[in-house]
Amino acid sequence: MSTPIRVTVNGQPVEVPAGSSVAAAVARVAAHSRRSVRGEPRAPLCGMGVCFECRVQVDGVAHVRSCMTPVSEGMQVRTDD
């Protein structure tokens, strides 16, 4: 397998296989990706870019679908608290 990719999620370093989605990196650290309008924790549902439950902040850009975004070295990811 090729070299793993290193990213940080909520400040914590994480390693994932090359070709992984940001969602896969998030799942190693955080139990949820976002909070709903009522404040409920939510995590990926559809895995294919349709539901928007997997939204996180990537390198300062908000509302990025983590299941549609491949990881790249040094990426900084933040979930809702």
Partner: peptide, 9 residues
């Protein structure tokens, strides 16, 4: 299945 293929633990 899709999440898993893309590295979901």
């Amino acid at each position: 299945q899709a999440l898993t293929k893309q590295g979901w633990p």
